[in-house]
Amino acid sequence: MDQPTFGLILNLISTLLACGGALFFIAGTVGLLRLPDLYSRLHALTKADNLGLGLIMLAVLPQAPDLFFALKMLLLWVLVMIAGATGAHLIAKRAVRGDGEDIL
């Protein structure tokens, strides 16, 4: 495959991945607004978001100027995923136990 065609296909893949990522972010927001209770909203928040960010990251990956940038993006995604899952667990635990300072 010659160089321009390869680049074109890469750009097409990037665009498709980014669109997919945006779709999951939309789903996350729709879930956050539509779902009836706190726990269900947490589901939408953690899962849709992490996948959305993952797809956006994959879309930007081929456009990365150097390897460090690519690795940093990957690191960012992993960190966001760990923080998201842990945060969701903490918020759910707080709600289950009902020991937040707002629940008196």
């Binding site: 980014a18 990522g21 972010f25 996350g28 927001t29 956050l32 928040l45 978001d49 992490n50 959305g52 960010l53 956006i56 990251m57 879309a59 930007v60 993006m73 960012l76 966001v80 998201g84 945060g87």
Partner: peptide, 13 residues
Amino acid sequence: QLLGTSGIAVLLL
């Protein structure tokens, strides 16, 4: 939280 994650995606783009 959602704003934060979306914001990161916007920044990447």
